[in-house]
Amino acid sequence: MSQVNAQRGLSSRQETAPPTGRRQLSDMRIVQLFILPTIILLILMNIFPLIYSLFLSFTNYSVISSDPPVWVGLDNYTHILSDPDFWHNFATTGTYALLSVSLQTIVGFALAMLLRSKFAGSGIITTLVLVPMMLSPIVVAVFWRLIFNPSYGILNPILGFTDINTSPEWLGDPALALWAIVIVDVWQWSPFVMLLCLAGLSAIPEYLYEAAAIDRASVWFQFRRITLPQVMPLLLIAVLFRTIEAFKQFDLVQGLTFGGPGDATETVSVELYRLAFQGQFETGLSSALAYIVLVVIVAISNLYIRALNRLREG
Protein backbone atom coordinates (compact mmCIF):
# COMPACT_ATOMS: atom_id res chain seq x y z
CA MET A 1 0.00 0.00 0.00
CA SER A 2 2.66 2.41 1.01
CA GLN A 3 4.63 1.47 -2.03
CA VAL A 4 1.72 2.36 -4.28
CA ASN A 5 1.38 5.72 -2.57
CA ALA A 6 5.02 6.39 -2.97
CA GLN A 7 4.85 5.64 -6.64
CA ARG A 8 1.85 7.79 -7.10
CA GLY A 9 3.56 10.62 -5.30
CA LEU A 10 6.51 10.26 -7.57
CA SER A 11 4.46 10.29 -10.74
CA SER A 12 2.35 13.29 -9.69
CA ARG A 13 5.53 15.21 -8.99
CA GLN A 14 6.64 14.49 -12.49
CA GLU A 15 3.37 15.72 -13.88
CA THR A 16 3.53 19.09 -12.10
CA ALA A 17 7.07 19.78 -13.23
CA PRO A 18 7.06 22.56 -15.84
CA PRO A 19 7.50 21.49 -19.45
CA THR A 20 11.09 21.84 -20.49
CA GLY A 21 10.25 24.36 -23.21
CA ARG A 22 8.85 26.97 -20.84
CA ARG A 23 11.49 26.58 -18.20
CA GLN A 24 13.86 28.59 -20.32
CA LEU A 25 11.89 31.78 -19.66
CA SER A 26 14.14 32.88 -16.81
CA ASP A 27 13.47 35.71 -14.37
CA MET A 28 15.97 37.82 -16.26
CA ARG A 29 14.04 37.25 -19.46
CA ILE A 30 10.75 38.31 -17.86
CA VAL A 31 12.38 41.44 -16.50
CA GLN A 32 13.63 42.29 -19.97
CA LEU A 33 10.23 41.67 -21.53
CA PHE A 34 8.59 44.11 -19.15
CA ILE A 35 11.23 46.80 -19.44
CA LEU A 36 11.89 46.65 -23.16
CA PRO A 37 8.71 48.42 -24.41
CA THR A 38 9.29 51.28 -22.02
CA ILE A 39 12.90 51.62 -23.06
CA ILE A 40 11.95 51.61 -26.74
CA LEU A 41 9.33 54.30 -26.16
CA LEU A 42 11.76 56.37 -24.12
CA ILE A 43 14.41 56.13 -26.80
CA LEU A 44 11.98 57.10 -29.56
CA MET A 45 10.18 59.91 -27.74
CA ASN A 46 12.89 61.34 -25.48
CA ILE A 47 16.42 60.23 -26.11
CA PHE A 48 16.35 60.43 -29.91
CA PRO A 49 14.79 63.95 -30.06
CA LEU A 50 17.21 65.05 -27.37
CA ILE A 51 20.25 63.93 -29.33
CA TYR A 52 18.82 64.93 -32.70
CA SER A 53 17.99 68.43 -31.50
CA LEU A 54 21.52 68.72 -30.07
CA PHE A 55 22.76 67.96 -33.56
CA LEU A 56 20.27 70.39 -35.11
CA SER A 57 21.39 73.16 -32.78
CA PHE A 58 24.71 73.19 -34.65
CA THR A 59 22.97 73.52 -38.03
CA ASN A 60 20.88 76.08 -39.89
CA TYR A 61 18.05 73.61 -40.39
CA SER A 62 14.43 74.66 -40.79
CA VAL A 63 11.61 72.12 -40.85
CA ILE A 64 9.69 73.98 -43.56
CA SER A 65 12.58 74.20 -45.98
CA SER A 66 13.54 71.30 -48.17
CA ASP A 67 17.27 72.01 -47.67
CA PRO A 68 19.14 69.47 -45.62
CA PRO A 69 20.74 70.68 -42.38
CA VAL A 70 24.07 72.45 -42.93
CA TRP A 71 26.64 72.38 -40.15
CA VAL A 72 27.28 75.90 -38.86
CA GLY A 73 29.27 75.07 -35.74
CA LEU A 74 28.66 77.33 -32.74
CA ASP A 75 27.07 80.07 -34.83
CA ASN A 76 23.59 79.60 -33.33
CA TYR A 77 24.95 79.80 -29.80
CA THR A 78 27.11 82.85 -30.43
CA HIS A 79 24.20 84.51 -32.16
CA ILE A 80 21.88 83.94 -29.21
CA LEU A 81 24.41 84.88 -26.55
CA SER A 82 25.43 88.10 -28.31
CA ASP A 83 21.93 89.30 -29.19
CA PRO A 84 20.54 91.79 -26.62
CA ASP A 85 16.99 90.70 -27.49
CA PHE A 86 17.69 87.22 -26.19
CA TRP A 87 19.32 88.63 -23.07
CA HIS A 88 16.18 90.63 -22.56
CA ASN A 89 14.19 87.37 -22.74
CA PHE A 90 16.47 85.78 -20.19
CA ALA A 91 16.22 88.80 -17.92
CA THR A 92 12.41 88.73 -18.18
CA THR A 93 12.34 85.00 -17.39
CA GLY A 94 14.72 85.45 -14.45
CA THR A 95 12.73 88.34 -12.99
CA TYR A 96 9.52 86.43 -13.47
CA ALA A 97 10.93 83.27 -11.82
CA LEU A 98 12.37 85.17 -8.89
CA LEU A 99 9.18 87.14 -8.22
CA SER A 100 6.77 84.32 -8.73
CA VAL A 101 8.70 81.62 -6.84
CA SER A 102 9.49 83.82 -3.85
CA LEU A 103 5.90 85.08 -3.59
CA GLN A 104 4.54 81.53 -3.91
CA THR A 105 6.90 80.34 -1.22
CA ILE A 106 5.84 83.07 1.17
CA VAL A 107 2.11 82.77 0.45
CA GLY A 108 2.16 78.95 0.40
CA PHE A 109 4.11 78.69 3.64
CA ALA A 110 1.86 81.25 5.33
CA LEU A 111 -1.24 79.33 4.19
CA ALA A 112 0.25 76.12 5.52
CA MET A 113 0.92 77.75 8.90
CA LEU A 114 -2.70 78.96 9.00
CA LEU A 115 -4.20 75.62 8.00
CA ARG A 116 -1.84 73.63 10.16
CA SER A 117 -3.99 73.59 13.26
CA LYS A 118 -7.26 71.75 12.86
CA PHE A 119 -10.40 73.80 13.24
CA ALA A 120 -14.00 73.41 12.15
CA GLY A 121 -13.96 73.42 8.36
CA SER A 122 -10.18 73.33 7.98
CA GLY A 123 -10.43 70.20 5.85
CA ILE A 124 -12.83 71.72 3.35
CA ILE A 125 -10.88 74.98 3.27
CA THR A 126 -7.67 73.08 2.50
CA THR A 127 -9.41 71.29 -0.35
CA LEU A 128 -10.81 74.54 -1.74
CA VAL A 129 -7.42 76.21 -1.56
CA LEU A 130 -6.04 73.38 -3.68
CA VAL A 131 -8.58 73.88 -6.49
CA PRO A 132 -6.53 76.40 -8.59
CA MET A 133 -3.73 73.85 -8.84
CA MET A 134 -6.07 71.40 -10.53
CA LEU A 135 -7.11 73.74 -13.34
CA SER A 136 -5.59 73.80 -16.79
CA PRO A 137 -3.29 76.84 -17.27
CA ILE A 138 -5.13 77.88 -20.42
CA VAL A 139 -8.47 77.92 -18.58
CA VAL A 140 -6.83 79.91 -15.80
CA ALA A 141 -5.35 82.35 -18.30
CA VAL A 142 -8.68 82.87 -20.04
CA PHE A 143 -10.70 83.68 -16.95
CA TRP A 144 -7.94 85.80 -15.43
CA ARG A 145 -8.01 87.83 -18.64
CA LEU A 146 -11.63 88.53 -17.82
CA ILE A 147 -10.74 89.38 -14.24
CA PHE A 148 -7.95 91.75 -15.37
CA ASN A 149 -10.09 93.39 -18.07
CA PRO A 150 -9.99 97.16 -17.47
CA SER A 151 -13.57 97.77 -18.65
CA TYR A 152 -15.52 95.05 -16.91
CA GLY A 153 -12.96 92.96 -14.98
CA ILE A 154 -13.66 92.44 -11.32
CA LEU A 155 -10.14 93.01 -10.00
CA ASN A 156 -9.95 96.78 -10.41
CA PRO A 157 -13.24 97.53 -8.59
CA ILE A 158 -12.12 95.21 -5.77
CA LEU A 159 -8.84 97.14 -5.51
CA GLY A 160 -10.86 100.38 -5.38
CA PHE A 161 -10.31 101.63 -8.94
CA THR A 162 -13.75 102.65 -10.13
CA ASP A 163 -12.83 105.14 -12.87
CA ILE A 164 -12.00 103.26 -16.05
CA ASN A 165 -9.80 106.12 -17.29
CA THR A 166 -7.41 106.02 -14.36
CA SER A 167 -7.60 102.37 -13.38
CA PRO A 168 -4.58 100.16 -14.17
CA GLU A 169 -4.47 98.19 -17.38
CA TRP A 170 -2.96 95.01 -16.02
CA LEU A 171 -2.26 93.29 -19.28
CA GLY A 172 -1.78 96.38 -21.41
CA ASP A 173 0.75 98.28 -19.31
CA PRO A 174 4.35 97.10 -19.88
CA ALA A 175 5.16 97.90 -16.24
CA LEU A 176 2.27 95.78 -14.95
CA ALA A 177 1.97 92.88 -17.39
CA LEU A 178 4.74 90.78 -15.84
CA TRP A 179 3.23 91.38 -12.42
CA ALA A 180 -0.13 90.25 -13.75
CA ILE A 181 1.37 86.93 -14.82
CA VAL A 182 3.16 86.65 -11.48
CA ILE A 183 -0.14 87.22 -9.67
CA VAL A 184 -1.90 84.50 -11.65
CA ASP A 185 0.95 82.04 -11.19
CA VAL A 186 1.07 82.75 -7.45
CA TRP A 187 -2.70 82.28 -7.28
CA GLN A 188 -2.47 78.97 -9.08
CA TRP A 189 0.64 77.46 -7.54
CA SER A 190 0.88 78.73 -3.96
CA PRO A 191 -1.40 75.82 -3.00
CA PHE A 192 1.28 73.43 -4.25
CA VAL A 193 3.85 74.99 -1.93
CA MET A 194 1.25 74.93 0.81
CA LEU A 195 0.57 71.24 0.28
CA LEU A 196 4.22 70.28 0.64
CA CYS A 197 4.72 72.61 3.61
CA LEU A 198 1.62 71.19 5.26
CA ALA A 199 3.07 67.71 4.90
CA GLY A 200 6.34 68.93 6.38
CA LEU A 201 4.62 70.73 9.25
CA SER A 202 2.44 67.81 10.19
CA ALA A 203 5.53 65.62 10.35
CA ILE A 204 7.05 67.76 13.11
CA PRO A 205 6.40 65.87 16.34
CA GLU A 206 4.41 67.74 18.99
CA TYR A 207 6.95 66.90 21.69
CA LEU A 208 9.53 69.15 20.06
CA TYR A 209 7.27 72.09 20.83
CA GLU A 210 6.70 70.78 24.35
CA ALA A 211 10.45 70.57 24.82
CA ALA A 212 10.80 74.07 23.41
CA ALA A 213 8.12 75.39 25.78
CA ILE A 214 10.01 73.86 28.70
CA ASP A 215 13.23 75.35 27.30
CA ARG A 216 11.56 78.77 27.44
CA ALA A 217 11.77 79.44 23.71
CA SER A 218 9.63 82.31 22.44
CA VAL A 219 7.20 81.75 19.58
CA TRP A 220 9.56 83.41 17.14
CA PHE A 221 12.53 81.39 18.43
CA GLN A 222 10.52 78.18 18.04
CA PHE A 223 9.59 79.14 14.49
CA ARG A 224 13.15 80.01 13.55
CA ARG A 225 14.91 77.12 15.26
CA ILE A 226 12.38 74.29 15.00
CA THR A 227 9.57 74.87 12.50
CA LEU A 228 11.62 76.37 9.69
CA PRO A 229 14.54 73.91 9.76
CA GLN A 230 12.19 70.97 10.08
CA VAL A 231 10.11 72.05 7.07
CA MET A 232 13.12 73.20 5.04
CA PRO A 233 13.76 69.95 3.11
CA LEU A 234 10.19 69.84 1.80
CA LEU A 235 10.08 73.58 1.25
CA LEU A 236 13.23 73.33 -0.86
CA ILE A 237 11.67 70.58 -2.96
CA ALA A 238 8.62 72.78 -3.54
CA VAL A 239 10.85 75.69 -4.52
CA LEU A 240 12.88 73.46 -6.83
CA PHE A 241 9.77 72.29 -8.67
CA ARG A 242 8.36 75.78 -8.92
CA THR A 243 11.65 77.24 -10.15
CA ILE A 244 11.95 74.68 -12.92
CA GLU A 245 8.34 75.37 -13.90
CA ALA A 246 8.88 79.12 -13.79
CA PHE A 247 11.83 78.88 -16.16
CA LYS A 248 9.69 76.92 -18.57
CA GLN A 249 6.71 79.25 -18.18
CA PHE A 250 4.83 79.31 -21.44
CA ASP A 251 1.12 78.60 -21.32
CA LEU A 252 0.16 81.32 -18.84
CA VAL A 253 2.07 83.95 -20.80
CA GLN A 254 0.65 82.70 -24.06
CA GLY A 255 -2.86 82.74 -22.63
CA LEU A 256 -2.62 86.13 -20.93
CA THR A 257 -0.37 88.44 -22.96
CA PHE A 258 1.21 86.47 -25.83
CA GLY A 259 4.48 87.93 -24.60
CA GLY A 260 3.22 91.52 -24.93
CA PRO A 261 2.73 94.37 -24.62
CA GLY A 262 5.76 94.80 -26.91
CA ASP A 263 8.21 92.28 -25.51
CA ALA A 264 7.50 93.09 -21.83
CA THR A 265 6.49 89.56 -20.89
CA GLU A 266 8.35 87.66 -23.56
CA THR A 267 9.89 84.79 -21.65
CA VAL A 268 12.47 82.48 -23.18
CA SER A 269 9.86 79.79 -23.75
CA VAL A 270 7.59 82.16 -25.65
CA GLU A 271 10.50 83.32 -27.79
CA LEU A 272 11.47 79.68 -28.29
CA TYR A 273 7.98 78.87 -29.48
CA ARG A 274 8.03 81.78 -31.93
CA LEU A 275 11.43 80.81 -33.31
CA ALA A 276 10.49 77.19 -33.72
CA PHE A 277 6.90 77.30 -34.91
CA GLN A 278 6.23 80.78 -36.34
CA GLY A 279 7.66 82.84 -39.16
CA GLN A 280 10.79 81.18 -40.45
CA PHE A 281 10.54 77.98 -38.38
CA GLU A 282 14.19 78.32 -37.37
CA THR A 283 14.63 74.83 -36.02
CA GLY A 284 18.40 74.98 -35.65
CA LEU A 285 18.44 78.29 -33.79
CA SER A 286 15.52 77.33 -31.55
CA SER A 287 17.22 74.02 -30.70
CA ALA A 288 20.27 75.97 -29.57
CA LEU A 289 18.08 78.22 -27.42
CA ALA A 290 16.32 75.18 -25.93
CA TYR A 291 19.70 73.72 -25.03
CA ILE A 292 20.75 76.92 -23.32
CA VAL A 293 17.54 76.84 -21.26
CA LEU A 294 18.20 73.20 -20.40
CA VAL A 295 21.70 73.97 -19.17
CA VAL A 296 20.43 76.87 -17.06
CA ILE A 297 17.69 74.72 -15.49
CA VAL A 298 20.08 71.84 -14.79
CA ALA A 299 22.53 74.26 -13.20
CA ILE A 300 19.89 75.83 -10.95
CA SER A 301 18.44 72.44 -10.00
CA ASN A 302 21.91 71.31 -9.06
CA LEU A 303 22.29 74.23 -6.68
CA TYR A 304 19.03 73.32 -4.98
CA ILE A 305 19.84 69.63 -4.79
CA ARG A 306 23.20 70.42 -3.25
CA ALA A 307 21.50 72.62 -0.66
CA LEU A 308 19.02 69.83 0.00
CA ASN A 309 21.76 67.27 0.50
CA ARG A 310 23.62 69.63 2.79
CA LEU A 311 20.44 69.97 4.86
CA ARG A 312 20.01 66.22 5.07
CA GLU A 313 23.57 65.45 5.99
CA GLY A 314 23.90 68.53 8.13
Binding site: Y207, E210, A211, I214, P229
Partner: peptide, 14 residues
Protein backbone atom coordinates in the same frame (compact mmCIF):
# COMPACT_ATOMS: atom_id res chain seq x y z
CA UNK B 1 11.53 73.65 35.60
CA UNK B 2 13.26 71.24 33.24
CA UNK B 3 11.56 68.22 31.74
CA UNK B 4 13.23 65.04 30.52
CA UNK B 5 11.00 63.21 28.07
CA UNK B 6 10.62 59.47 27.71
CA UNK B 7 11.62 59.49 24.07
CA UNK B 8 14.26 62.19 24.60
CA UNK B 9 12.47 64.82 22.46
CA UNK B 10 15.77 66.01 21.05
CA UNK B 11 15.76 68.49 18.17
CA UNK B 12 16.65 66.09 15.38
CA UNK B 13 18.02 68.72 13.00
CA UNK B 14 20.54 70.10 15.47
Amino acid sequence: IAFVFQFFALYSHM
